[in-house]
Design a protein around this nucleic acid. Structure first.
Lengths: 226, 226
DNA sequence: GTCGCTATTGAACACGCGATCAACGAGTGA
DNA sequence: TCACTCGTTGATCGCGTGTTCAATAGCGAC
């Protein structure tokens, strides 16, 4: 008589607890199946409640998607950036970071990112969050590189544009991997990529534009979130 | 009495002609609004016929999307690759190519690509087309670089991995631009990017893996299309 | 001028979507 | 033990999706 089947969830929860369970369910659902899978009904089924209850806690799905996006990518960013080891040199650290981000097991987050670029053009709340998260990624990488330069002035690299190239390269590769289009030896190409970004002769790089140190290189920094 | 309003299209067309008009309409629609906008009804409205007629000529929407994708990106590839000028040196050519691909006016094609990476994971027909088109892009760039090396042996670049990095970088940047996250001076960073890819010291690049010349660097080349 | 072929239509089916709202009922304080 | 609060439900609306099919009507051939 199936006593323990189904999750024996208490029928009535304190609002904050229910809200947490709904958000958690949505986050895990989006991480598994992408942002497009975030429908009121799918989240409700995952959490084990009625669609109406999901709609009650998050009345507008568009902004809920934006919220879930931020939760997923912010967690990953903090994890990846947090595993930077100050005791090791920049190149080794960045190599680890690239390999981590390109690992197949991260395809779920890659899917979230790729969908966010497409959805972010029509969902303005999401678009703003996407820009904000990319700003955070960029400045985090910029800081790491700048810090490494401070300790080893022999490094002739522009932190801002290097961070920008790294992001573009990693994001492009991640997108490609979604359809399983990837070079044979990822480790070798990650090294090659890093070399390309870090070992550029200073000839042209530092002469053309001379970006003011610390100045944002973004055309339009993300607006504040509401 | 609005004699010329509406497209005065003949009611009944020869099948091939009608088919062409439907495909053309779908292509222009997807180019304007992305692959997600490709619904039976939207295409029908654009062409000026009934949804049932669209479904008659393209009974399965999933494969129609794949077909439209190929039409759009193949046309762009041929246009961009075709504008390569053999009389000019590699760097200048590639710089032009990058600037062309990153131009804001090409955001429509960028949207198609980004959506194709996401949709290609669940729409297998589309996924195969995506891999095929990326293969064509990769080998086209590889050929251009290899040809340049043949004329100027002073170039110490690995065509395969350079092409791969260029694609990743450009695709990443294009994706970013969809949500209007872009560096201030694109031209400067395009130059910087190109320098990164072309001027890598040969120390590590050529020692680690020594890829067989002409051998595909892809883990799994795209299967044949049906 | 009529016939027959077939391109084209209209209608319908079975879904899935976000959103809304009156009504229910579990838990709590009196 | 009663009554009230409010978390939760079920039902419904309006819309959009792909797909199917009998019925219509335009056009060329005879």
């Amino acid at each position: 008589m199936e006593t323990t089947s189904r999750a024996a969830a208490p029928r009535r929860l304190p609002p904050e607890e229910r809200e947490r369970s709904i958000v958690d369910g949505a986050v895990s659902l989006a991480a598994e199946s992408g942002l497009e899978a975030l429908t009121v009904r799918a989240v409700a089924a995952r959490v084990g409640v009625t669609p109406a209850l999901v709609a009650h806690y998050r009345p507008v799905m568009e902004s809920f998607v934006a919220e879930v996006f931020t939760a997923i990518v912010a967690a990953e960013r903090e994890e990846v950036i947090g595993s930077y080891d100050p005791a090791v040199d920049l190149r080794t650290n960045l190599l680890r970071l690239i390999e981590t981000l390109l690992d197949d097991s991260r395809d779920d987050v890659a899917m979230v990112w790729v969908q966010s670029w497409a959805l972010g053009t029509r969902n303005e709340a999401l678009g703003a969050r996407v820009r904000a998260e990319m700003d955070l990624w960029h400045s985090a990488l910029e800081d790491l590189i700048a810090r490494a330069i401070a300790e080893d002035p022999a490094l002739r690299v522009d932190p801002g544009s290097s961070a920008w190239m790294l992001l573009a390269m990693v994001d492009g590769m991640s997108a490609h991997s979604l359809v399983h289009w990837a070079p044979r030896d990822r480790a070798a190409l990650a090294r090659r990529t890093l070399t390309a970004v870090l070992d550029v002769p200073a000839t042209e790089a530092s002469t053309t534009e001379a970006p003011a140190p610390g100045a944002s290189q973004l055309a339009q920094p993300a607006e504040n979130l509401r």
